[in-house]
Simulated assay, not measured.
Amino acid sequence: MSKAFIPTYDICSLAMGRPASEDILVARFSAYLAVHKDIHFPHRHSFYHLVFFTAGGGSHTIDFERFPVKPGQLYFMIPGQVHSWFFSGKTEGYVMNVSADFFNAFLQDAEYVERFPFFSGVSAEGVVQLPKATAPVVTQLFEEMLKEIRGEQVYSQDLLRLKVLEMFIQVSRASRQKHAKQEPPHNYVLLRNFRKLVDQHYMQLHLPKDYAARLYVTPNYLNAFCRHMLGKSAGEIIRDRVLLEAKRLLINADMSIASIAYQLSFEDNSYFTKFFKKYAGVTPEEFRKNIS
């Protein structure tokens, strides 16, 4: 397949023989790889995607950030993120593809799933190394999901929803226990709202004051808050989102550098090139050449 663009897969295209109307797929990872042998190159999903590794090595890349594959590791991806992988040795575990609609018939709060920290859309936050005590719990939940995915008993879909949500909660608890300092809940709400606004408006709004006004806080407070929570200023978070989208667009060889600069609201091609070189370490042309 040409690397001139990033393909986007929906659940139906990766269904492994399941009915096209399904909103969820759960499978053993080795079986998934055997059916979809050519999805190691960069691609996106239109659904939530996660893999739990129980054996294997190699690496997987999420939004151009590379992570080593380790047993006991989960990675979570939200729709639209770009990823690829390279495995060494026998890789085993479990894979889940699930649409947002899968939960909508069950939960009154449409944003409930987005609140889990591993679904922030930040690559490093979506990779979780489970404590040894939690890995068997997650393994057992996946085994129970594999039974329910067959849909042979009444209420199978509802029980499957419960198992998926229980797994999300168990992983969230385990990952937060690793951090000694626990933030008050309202801090996570503000952080999630800021990130959501950035994801919606980063092409047009590049200044922290624009987001602070929408969050009803001062720019100084927003910057201090972001440094406290993430070790970065609000401006850096906005800049990182613009840089990430630039990298995603650069994979499309049919888009000119000037077109990308215009889409990202840069004044001109020269300013965009200087911005990209400063923060990515290479020019847009060099980045494109390296990934081709």
Score class of each variant (00 low, 15 high):
8 T>P: 00
165 L>P: 07
114 E>K: 15
112 Y>W: 12
226 C>E: 01
55 A>G: 06
207 L>I: 11
281 G>C: 09
71 P>D: 09
236 E>L: 02
243 L>I: 09
106 F>H: 11
225 F>E: 02
242 V>Y: 00
273 T>E: 07
141 L>Q: 12
207 L>H: 15
102 F>V: 05
291 I>L: 09
26 V>A: 07
199 D>M: 10
168 F>P: 05
8 T>Y: 07
161 R>G: 05
155 Y>T: 13
62 I>E: 03
169 I>D: 13
101 D>S: 14
29 F>K: 06
63 D>F: 11
272 F>L: 10
137 V>Y: 01
137 V>I: 14
32 Y>A: 04
167 M>D: 04
111 E>P: 00
142 F>Q: 02
112 Y>K: 10
221 Y>M: 06
157 Q>E: 11
69 V>D: 01
210 D>L: 03
6 I>D: 00
11 I>M: 10
167 M>I: 09
155 Y>F: 14
180 A>G: 08
227 R>Y: 10
21 S>C: 05
123 S>K: 06
196 K>P: 00
37 K>R: 15
132 K>Q: 12
284 P>L: 06
67 F>P: 03
120 S>Y: 06
278 K>S: 10
260 I>E: 12
213 A>T: 14
117 P>K: 08
132 K>Y: 03
206 H>G: 02
145 M>G: 11
172 S>E: 13
75 Y>W: 13
283 T>R: 03
246 A>I: 04
281 G>V: 13
186 H>Y: 09
220 N>F: 06
240 D>G: 03
221 Y>W: 06
282 V>I: 13
